[in-house]
Design a binder for these strands. Structure first.
Length: 159
DNA sequence: GCCAACGTTGGC
DNA sequence: GCCAACGTTGGC
C-alpha cells in the first residue's frame, strides 16, 4: 500500500462534488502526463489512501481524503472527439491513457499552502517542491501520518 | 494576467 | 540524440 496526493481543480471536481457522486466515486479521467499515468497503472493498489488537493483556485490546498477504488483502465475521454481530453493517436485497440476510480472518504478542513509550507516536517513533500506540476504524487508514510494525525487530528481507523 | 518551471514535439 | 520552440500547469 502507498499513500498519494491527487490534484483536482474544484471547478471540475471538488471534494464536495466527489461526496455528491453516485457511490461517492469518480473516474480520474484527463491525466495526460506519463509519470502520473504510470503511477496509476503500475503503483496504485485498490484501497490506497490519498490526499484530495484543490488546485488552480483561490485557496489551493488539501481539502479531503479519498481512496483508490479501482485498478487502472482505459480513460474514455481519449476516444471522444468532443472531449477536451481527446487524443487522436489513441485507439481502443491501443489505448494511451488510463485512469483509476477514486472514492470519497472524508472532507477535511482546508490545509492551505502557507500552512503546509510552514511545517518543517513537510519540507520535502513532492507537491511543495519548486516548479512541481505533477498532478499525482506519492506521499511518504511519515508525511501522511503528520498531516492526517497531527494536522487533521484523525485516527487511521476513522478513515 | 503574469510568468517560472517543466514536458513534449519535431527538425536536424 | 540534441535542443529550440512551443504548450501547459498552477501559484501569485
Amino acid at each position: 500500500m502507498r499513500y498519494w496526493l491527487m490534484k483536482s481543480e474544484p471547478d471540475d471536481c471538488s471534494i464536495d462534488d466527489l461526496a455528491a457522486m453516485p457511490e461517492r466515486t469518480v473516474a480520474w479521467y484527463g491525466v495526460r502526463n506519463y509519470q502520473a499515468r504510470n503511477f496509476m497503472m503500475n503503483q496504485m493498489t485498490v484501497g490506497d489512501p490519498l490526499l484530495f488537493y484543490h488546485s488552480s483556485c483561490p485557496e489551493p490546498g488539501i481539502a479531503g481524503i479519498a481512496r483508490v477504488a479501482s485498478p487502472a483502465y482505459p480513460d474514455e475521454t481519449q476516444f471522444d472527439p468532443q472531449s477536451r481530453f481527446y487524443d487522436s493517436s489513441a485507439s481502443r485497440e491501443k489505448p494511451r491513457w488510463f485512469n483509476v476510480d477514486v472514492r470519497f472518504v472524508t472532507k477535511t478542513r482546508l490545509l492551505g499552502l502557507p500552512e503546509l509550507r510552514s511545517r518543517p516536517e513537510l519540507a520535502n513533500m513532492r507537491v511543495l517542491a519548486r516548479g512541481n506540476r505533477l498532478s499525482i504524487t506519492p506521499v511518504d508514510p511519515q508525511e501522511w501520518r503528520f498531516i492526517v494525525e497531527t494536522l487533521l487530528g484523525l485516527k487511521e481507523d476513522e478513515l
